[in-house]
Structure formats: structure tokens, C-alpha cells
Simulated assay, not measured.
Amino acid sequence: MTHQQLVTVRVFTQRLSATPRGARLARRLAVNQLHAWGVPHGTDVSDAVAVIVAELAANAVTHGRVPGRDFELRLSLVTGSVRVEVTDTRGDPRPPGPADVQAVPPLADSGRGLVLVSALADRWEVVDRQPPPGKTVRAEVDLPGRPAMVRVSGPVTPGT
């Protein structure tokens, strides 16, 4: 008889208005949901997810906004990590991915969002929205003391 390990995946999904208020609400919803899942406010994971959600939501509102369309926040508590996904419906152009992020001059007025995401996330990527148009920026933050997933995308399976 083969024994399979049970994996509990918790998911929170919310569509938000593509406005600065919607971006602020995304951050608050994320930290409150993490707290409900047992990741307390003020921990390194909660703080990292808060910054990642704030940056990705701000980008969705600023660069991915299509008038009359919302953006979506999706959080998943998967084996060993918290996955953050922010999806917008703008189909052009694709934002820079992890390999494209460069340091920003100290006095620059903008350009630090994805640098912060790169610094705080253990993994992140940009994928096409399904169904098109649009894109999803997906980031994961590992939970201390729990085995991490190796891949960001694909089905959630233990030990991959």
C-alpha cells in the first residue's frame, strides 16, 4: 500500500478596483488573511508579503490599468511558502521579469518596486494571464521551518 502525504492548500482571491485605494486594500487584505492562516502580523514573512503585494498592486494600478477593469489578488498558502499573484488585464507590454531587474540610482524617483520584489521574494516570475489579455506577476516567500516548493508554477504537489 502506498502512503500519500496530504497537502492542504489555502487560497484567498479578491478582485479590486484598479485605483490607489484598491492597491492599499490589497495590502491590508493580504496581511489580514496571512494572520488568519497563522502567519502573524509583524513577522518577516508577513512583512515581506505586505511589501510584495503593495508593489505588485501599485504596478497593476499604475502600469496595468485598463479603464473599467479590476485587478486580482490571489494568495495561496502552499507547502512551505506563501504564493502571491497579482493579475491585471493589460496585454501590452510585458513587464520586466527577474532577469531584467537592475539596481536603481539612489536619487531616482521611481523604479524600485521590482527591485524590492526581487529582494524579498524567494522566487518570482511573470506569466501570461489565462484567459488573455493580461499578465500575472507571481511571487513566493518561503515559510521558515517548512520545506519549500521548488517551482513557482504548475500544480501544487508535495516534494516538487
Rank of each mutant, 00 (worst) to 15 (best):
A18R: 01
T19I: 04
T19S: 04
G22T: 05
A23N: 04
A23V: 13
A23W: 03
L25W: 06
A26W: 04
R27Q: 06
R27N: 02
R28E: 15
A30T: 08
V31F: 07
N32I: 11
N32A: 10
Q33L: 10
H35A: 15
A36N: 14
W37I: 13
W37R: 08
G38E: 12
V39M: 04
P40E: 03
P40G: 05
H41F: 12
H41S: 08
H41V: 14
T43K: 05
T43C: 04
V45M: 12
D47E: 10
A48L: 10
A48T: 09
V49H: 06
V49E: 09
A50L: 08
A54E: 09
A54P: 06
E55W: 01
A57I: 07
A58V: 12
N59P: 06
A60L: 11
A60S: 07
V61W: 06
V61Y: 01
H63R: 04
H63V: 05
G64N: 10
P67W: 13
R69K: 15
R69W: 14
D70G: 14
L73R: 07
L73Q: 10
L75D: 08
S76Q: 15
S76V: 11
L77I: 11
V78W: 05
T79K: 14
G80P: 10
S81A: 15
V82D: 03
V82A: 01
E85G: 01
V86W: 00
T87P: 02
D88Q: 01
D88R: 02
T89R: 09
R90V: 10
D92C: 04
D92H: 01
P93D: 02
P93F: 00
P93S: 00
P95I: 00
P96C: 01
G97M: 02
A99G: 07
D100H: 03
D100I: 07
V101L: 05
Q102N: 10
L107V: 11
A108L: 00
D109C: 09
S110G: 01
S110E: 00
G111I: 00
G111C: 03
R112T: 08
G113N: 03
V115K: 03
L116R: 01
L116K: 02
V117L: 05
V117W: 03
S118G: 12
S118Y: 10
A119R: 09
A119S: 08
R123V: 13
R123E: 10
R123T: 08
W124N: 02
E125C: 14
V126I: 06
V126A: 02
V126P: 04
V126M: 09
V127F: 06
R129W: 04
Q130L: 15
P131W: 09
P132H: 07
G134C: 12
G134D: 05
K135H: 14
K135Q: 14
T136V: 15
T136N: 08
T136C: 13
T136F: 12
V137Y: 12
A139D: 12
E140R: 15
E140S: 14
P144M: 11
P144A: 10
G145E: 11
G145F: 09
R146D: 11
R146L: 15
P147L: 08
A148C: 08
A148D: 09
V150A: 14
R151Q: 14
V152Q: 06
V152E: 00
